[in-house]
Structure formats: structure tokens, C-alpha cells
Nucleic acid binder design. Sequence first.
DNA 1: CCTTAATCCTGGAAGC
DNA 2: TGCTTCCAGGATTAAG
Length: 266
Amino acid sequence: MVGARVIGVKLRRRDFVERCAGRKGRITRCELLEGSTISELQRHGKNLAILTLQGPALGIHLGMSGHLRYVARGETLAENNHIHCEWNLKSARGKGRLVFRDPRRFGGIWTFASIADLKQRLWQDLGPDALSIDSDVLHARFARTERAIKAVLLDQHVLAGVGNIYADEALFSAGIHPLKPANRLTDVQTKSLTSAIQSVMNAALDSGGSTIRSYTDADGNAGRFAEIHRVYDQAGEPCPNCAKPLRNMRVSQRTTTYCPRCQPIR
DNA sequence: CCTTAATCCTGGAAGC
DNA sequence: TGCTTCCAGGATTAAG
């Protein structure tokens, strides 16, 4: 995408896009990057950004069921429904479309005049990115709250990028009970959890992500990490470590799977 | 501050 | 088979 020129935009659902500041009225094609050249892609946690040479920038969140697909000219998409926005691109590699499909519509697009504007208004309150977090920084953040560690991991204001799957996988890997108060994690436990978060997420990236239902990468490939989830969606199955059945509980309105023996509360 | 429930949606699976 | 209920990679809001 970088270097491609946006030669057209088709917005099928106007309520899928929001303008964060500035004038009122309809979102324009220009705000959706038409006529601009993509200069850079950025990501912070689960938030994506598309930057342009001319200034206009988009914030994108995939929500639960969202996915972005690149469709080269001549190619067709098997699933044509729930496409809320598409961008026609022209680059050295030819023409194609970037397609945003999101059946549940929990995702969205936000328009900004500049990347500085986007960061200030959209990313301001996010915690540091999970893939590059430092254990000491995380420890300091955990020290500020006695909420359950699972709830804290899901809180994007504390740490950006960890969702329900990777929170459970990381807590299991680090041997920490989901209900343990965040401020009672020892230094050693925080170090262990930090490296668990990063190794779990990097392993997931290597496998192309966790496809539960609809997620695909930009080329339409499903991820294979769900095949090797150790606890997520495995309640009742034997723990990979000790063979005791894994259990479900509810934390922060989210199903949480853990091993009662390998993840003690202390 | 904290937690809970409700809300925004579609669709697949399970239950009857 | 068909109908109903529940549940799902997320995040915000209101209420208590």
C-alpha cells in the first residue's frame, strides 16, 4: 500500500466512519484519502493508521470481525457482503482495491487532517504497545491498581494490544491466576508475564494470527494460531502442563479460561 | 476509583 | 427440519 495513490473511495455505510473534530456535515472523499498518496502505515495496540503525503490520515479499528483485504484488479472476493468501505489504489504494482469487511460492525474508521491530530485525539489515552513494553514500566503501571490482572491486561489504557485470547494465553504461560490483583504481582511474575505476552503474540504473528471465524490477513489467508491455543476455548480439556481439566470463569465480562493448578492465586 | 449490565451487530452452533 | 437461545478476536456508557 505504501506509495499507492488512492484514485477512488466507495463508502457503503456512512455510519461506519466518524470525524473526530472540525467541520460538521458529510464525510468527504478527500477525508477518506481520495486523491492522496499513502506514505506510511502505523499501528499502536489494536489501532491502525494510514498516513498520506498530503496530510489526511485514517484511524482504523477492526473490532471483533473486521478484516482488511487487498484485491488485485481482476480478482474477486468470495464474500461480498458486509463491505463497508473500499479504496481503489494505483501503484507501481498496478491497480487494486483495499476492502474493509466487518460483519458485526464493531470496527470503524476515523478521519483526521493529520497524523498528529489522530494521535492526539485517538491514541492519546492508550497505554504503551504490548509488543515493545518494558517489564519495569509494566510493573509500575500494575502497581497503581488492585484490579484483577486479567481485567488490567484487557484495559487498553494500561497496555495496548492485548485482547481476550492473548491475555489468557499469556497468563497461563506465566502461571498467574486471572484474578490476582495487579499490584500484588512480584517483580519476577511481572517479568515472566511481560515475556509471555511478547512471545505469545510474536508466535501468533508468525502463525498469521488467530482465526476463530472471519479473520484473514490482507491476502485472505486464515491464521493458524487458534490450532495451538493452549487454554483459550479449551475449558474442560486437560491442562497442557498438568492434565487437570481447564476451567472457565468470567472476568470483565469476558470468558476466561485457566488452569486451577498451574495458575495459583498467590 | 471500582464493578456490573446493557449496548452496538451478524452468524454459527447447540438445544429442543 | 425449523425454531429459539446462547455465544463470539472489542469497547463505550450508564448505573450503583
